[in-house]
Amino acid sequence: MKIRLERDVLAEAVQWAARSLPTRPSVPILAGLLIRTSDEAVVLSSFDYETSTQVHARAQVSDEGQVLVSGRLLSDICRSLPNKPVDISTDDSRMELTCGSARFTLQTLPVADYPALPTMPEQTGTVASDEFARAVSQVVVAAGRDELLPVFTGVRMEIDGETISLLATDRYRMALKELTWSPASPSSSGAALVPAKVLADTARSMTAGESVSISLSGASQGDGLIGFQGTGSGGQRETTTRLLDGEFPKVRHLMSIQPQLTVRGATAEIIDAAKRVALVAERNTPLRMLIGDGTITLEAATGDQAQASEALAATVDLHGAAEPSLEAAGFNPNYLLDALGALDAPFVDFAFTAPGKPCLLTGLAELDGEPMTDYRHVIMLMRLPASR
């Protein structure tokens, strides 16, 4: 194999393909990055038996071929190269990389031992790349990180005709985003539980093109394989990943609560105040929201060592109750900030039912407008002490 390509094109392609390489591969061969030629491009691939990545990069191909080398080492090398064209050539046991006066020789791995990458399933539909990336970023904040509970580390993707719903929960918060897309069939339907980390990385990396193609197999059973095809700044990118097993908890009903009390305020103001007050919040203690007449006050403390409070103007409304039964709510400060940051709206509506019950957050385009229900975020409230 003999190819030439630009340094930035190579560095970006290698970095993207190598990002899913396992830190501790079950088989040493999986630490390799497969490089092969294809017409006027070079294709870089990685696979760990769960997730596969492929990226097509523009290149001048003199001699065709393929080679397998250490992916992380090649990634480190590419980041350090001078800004000059890169020449890559191979023989039976070595790959030589030359960039200006810099020259590297890498021992190759046996290509014959490398596993075959999964076949991309048949296309299920396409979605606007920027909308998809924004939707995924809004939902993954609520996904769990505990690998011992894998079902909570995924995002449930539900397909119903021209609507995709993304749903995530870690048991203490839930996020739901609904967006429109272009299905391959108007009657498309199905559900899949996609690893949240893979979904987030993939959606974020495919925004250079107009759309992302989603390909789902085993959609009716909620298992199998899902694939994504899109465009990065250097060329076409493809990812497949195995879906997670297990039954996703039924939490959709929490997204349609009937509030007893609602609080509305400016999102940015509440974020800034919550960040300031949370500086003195002791670990595993709530950030208190005291609800008054036309105001909310955020409070936090670390015992007697430090206390903080900040009052903000807010619109407080009762719904079907003569007197409010909820005068204060306790939030995990990190969960509250994650939710407010994901809303992507100038104003926020807090919908409360009763003390200790979940709180529903939705965005508002205007303070007195209707809630924007395409994105809903639920936070389980923390128990507050009986007295302050």
Rank of each mutant, 00 (worst) to 15 (best):
L318S: 04
Q260T: 15
T362W: 00
G356H: 11
A311I: 05
D304Y: 11
Q260H: 14
L343F: 00
L360W: 00
G356Q: 10
K275I: 14
L360R: 08
L254S: 15
P346L: 04
V316P: 06
H377M: 06
D349R: 11
A268V: 15
L290W: 09
D272E: 15
G369Q: 07
D374R: 14
G265R: 11
M289F: 00
K275C: 14
E370I: 07
M255Y: 03
A342Y: 05
Q305L: 13
G320I: 03
L367V: 14
N332V: 03
P324N: 01
L361V: 04
M289K: 03
I271W: 09
G303H: 07
E299W: 02
D368Q: 08
Y375T: 05
Q305M: 10
V348Q: 02
G363R: 00
P286G: 04
G303C: 05
A321V: 14
A300W: 05
G330Q: 04
L337A: 04
A300E: 03
A301G: 08
G341I: 01
V263F: 08
D344Y: 03
A311C: 06
A274P: 08
A313G: 13
L287T: 06
A329H: 07
D374G: 07
A311R: 13
L336Y: 00
E370V: 12
Q307T: 07
E366A: 13
L312T: 10
